[in-house]
Amino acid sequence: MSVVLRVDGARWREHLRRTVEANPGLVPVVKGNGYGFGLPVLLAESARLNGERLVRQIAVGTYAEAPTALAAHPGDVLVLEPYRAAVPPVPGGPGLAVGDPALIHSVTGLDDALHLAGRAGRARVVVEGLTSMNRFGAPYGVVPGLLADLADRGLAVEGVTLHLPLGTGHLEEVSRWVAGVDGVRTWYLSHLSASELATLRTRFPDRELRPRVGTAMWLGDPGALAVRAHVLDVRAVAKGDRAGYRQRTLGAGHLLVVSGGTAHGVALEAPSAAATLRQRAITVAEGVLEAAHRVRSPFTVGGRSTWFVEPPHMQVSLLALPAGVTPPAVGDEVDVRVRNTTLLADAVDIT
């Protein structure tokens, strides 16, 4: 049994190349589940792009990911989570040398930075500014003084990093930072559109802007990617038959057992944003259906969406196929819609 991420390798790699070439200084983000590919695949692709002189640096999410990245990627590795003296274990993953010359740390305050310097000496750091994202960062008015203090204490200050909310409309916020913080040549920026980056480069031709890109790089050409699950069993059922742990009543048709469950990230949901009236209405309608034990599954059979018999199991799901619909055969593959940031595929097949 398996859930497989199938990748059109030539098309996907062409997209990667176009993305990097269109964004000078691009820093690929390689973190978490590797956007469904797994970290080893993305690290190998980043190393290949480094070998072609297209990528110098990559970014990882946490210190726990840094040792693997440093071993696989020949360039610099930026850690996005801020260094915290008070968060054990510091620095994180076993075997990580905090002072590795290829490692770049994110800092948001002097005390943490001094703790880092005590462990790593002349550590390479970027200062994270507190943007409208309102997550990590030093406030705008604090950053100039912090930069000076870090330089005075002997840390190698490499620039400022800004993590912005999703969507557009960040041009003036970023411009305020870049124009107002003197002496900083290199800026790491996330979630900016191509037009916003182009405008910033025109406004600040003497600055080096390095976009940090994850989703738009690895998942930016959905047509090159497909997640498929194997059909493991097919059984004709009559109305009133029962199935599953919860013994739900079935209608006439077929019961399908397919690969893919919570262990693969199938049907795992983040809270709905519900930003529009339509999205709220959909959320309410889905809640009503769920209360009636009617939950649409992410599996598609013959172009037709299917319903869960019950919540997915750890590694398989039970699906109801109504009478009149031709069932697939055991061993066939069916499409499955899954968020790549939660996907844990059994295999990644790049052809």
Rank of each mutant, 00 (worst) to 15 (best):
H105L: 03
R203M: 13
A69Q: 02
V87L: 15
N340G: 14
G159H: 08
R246N: 15
A243T: 12
L110I: 11
Q57I: 00
V142H: 13
S259Q: 07
M314P: 09
F204D: 01
A69D: 01
L318D: 12
G32C: 11
N340M: 15
G244L: 14
T202M: 06
G121V: 00
P88D: 09
T276D: 02
L80I: 00
V143P: 09
S195H: 15
L162I: 04
G261T: 13
W12Q: 12
P144Y: 03
N23E: 12
A267C: 04
N33C: 12
D111S: 07
D111I: 02
T215M: 03
V98K: 08
L39F: 10
W307C: 08
P74Y: 03
V55F: 03
P205M: 06
R248H: 15
R278N: 08
R201L: 08
R11T: 13
L189Y: 09
L250C: 12
T202E: 15
L42W: 02
V157F: 08
N23W: 10
G302Y: 06
D100R: 04
L42V: 04
L268V: 15
P222T: 01
L114H: 04
G36S: 12
A69I: 00
V107M: 03
P211C: 05
L171M: 11
Y83F: 15
V107W: 06
